[in-house]
């Protein structure tokens, strides 16, 4: 053929045709709107009018005003605490299911872990409010048992309550990837380690943990990033000092009617969590390679 071979092979063409509906959908409804948010964040809101001259004013505000600074710091802190808590709480459970539950029963156990989540998210958070509240389950039991006389007030409406509630909500998302990673470990590796004289602790530290790392990392990312965007839990159980950046974003878009500032806050939050996640991935990359 004088004009040479076509640049795109028929196979590649079929692949491109197949992916295109999904890709175009993501392009139109994700990439484009996010680009719009980026643009909006450089505009300013002047009462009811939108000023379309490009300026960094919103970002200046978002990064320098103490209220936004402290909200951002607190949100990152809470998200990190939730991430650490879910991984620490979830790991032994994943380990238990992967290594101590017979294979036949594993699906049932995984199912068991998700059952509490098959009801409304909002109702679940509200129930935590009931558990932790002034007349709630914990105070009721403590008073009933005579351990305390007055119900405790400090267990609800603070950051601790937010961390607890969010951790509860995200636990299955941490357990599942860790379980998958643990379950993939070739049992003969563990036996080999034992055969070579490793005790249970050494074996855990040298074989199990490194091989579980991809799952742990996935769990951490899956929990950390979305947590920063939750404004329901802080609103319901956080009290005034437990609010997070997402609450502020929501306020800016709705009540305060300052969408450009909201956009700048949202993008800043996204930037911060992405940066932290990338640094985290960079730090643990040596654990990820052999299993890829």
């Amino acid at each position: 053929m004088p004009w040479g071979r076509p640049r795109i092979s028929p196979e590649a063409a079929s692949g491109l045709v197949l992916i295109s509906p999904t890709f175009i959908y993501a392009l139109l409804l994700l990439a484009t709107p996010i680009a719009a948010v980026v643009l909006l964040s450089f505009w300013t809101q002047d009462y009811l009018d939108l000023q379309r001259t490009l300026t960094l004013a919103n970002y200046q505000k978002a990064w320098s005003e103490p209220i936004y600074q402290s909200l951002m710091l607190r949100s990152v802190k809470i998200s990190l605490l939730v991430t650490v808590a879910t991984v620490l709480i979830g790991f032994p459970i994943a380990y238990y299911i992967a290594f101590m539950v017979p294979p036949r029963h594993r699906p049932i156990w995984l199912f068991l872990i998700t059952i509490p989540f098959w009801t409304s998210y909002l109702v679940r958070i509200f129930l935590w409010k009931v558990i932790l509240g002034y007349g709630g389950v914990i105070n009721g039991s403590l008073v009933g048992l005579g351990i305390i006389e007055e119900p405790l007030k400090f267990i609800l409406y603070n950051q601790g309550a937010v961390v607890l509630t969010l951790s509860h909500a995200w636990l299955p998302f941490a357990i599942l990837p860790i379980f998958v990673a643990l379950n993939k470990i070739d049992r003969s590796l563990l036996e080999a380690a034992e055969d070579l004289g490793d005790g249970p602790v050494r074996r855990f530290l040298h074989i199990t943990l490194p091989l579980a790392m991809p799952g742990i990392v996935a769990a951490a990312i899956i929990v950390f990033i979305p947590t920063i965007g939750d404004y329901v839990t802080p609103r319901l159980v956080g009290g005034p000092n437990g609010l997070m950046i997402a609450n502020m974003i929501e306020v800016q878009f709705k009540k305060a009617n300052n969408a450009p500032l909201g956009a700048a806050l949202a993008l800043s939050a996204m930037f911060v969590v992405t940066l932290i996640s990338l640094l985290f991935l960079l730090a643990v990359r040596k654990y990820l390679r052999p299993n890829q």
Binding site: L30, A31, V273
Partner: peptide, 27 residues
């Protein structure tokens, strides 16, 4: 199938999995 920019295209499709939902709502 193998095709050019496969990873990038799939990456964009998978992004919402690690995107705070509030970003999707806001945008």
């Amino acid at each position: 199938y193998e095709f050019p920019a496969k990873r990038g295209m799939l990456g964009l499709v998978m992004v919402p999995m690690v995107l705070p939902e509030i970003i999707v709502g806001v945008s």
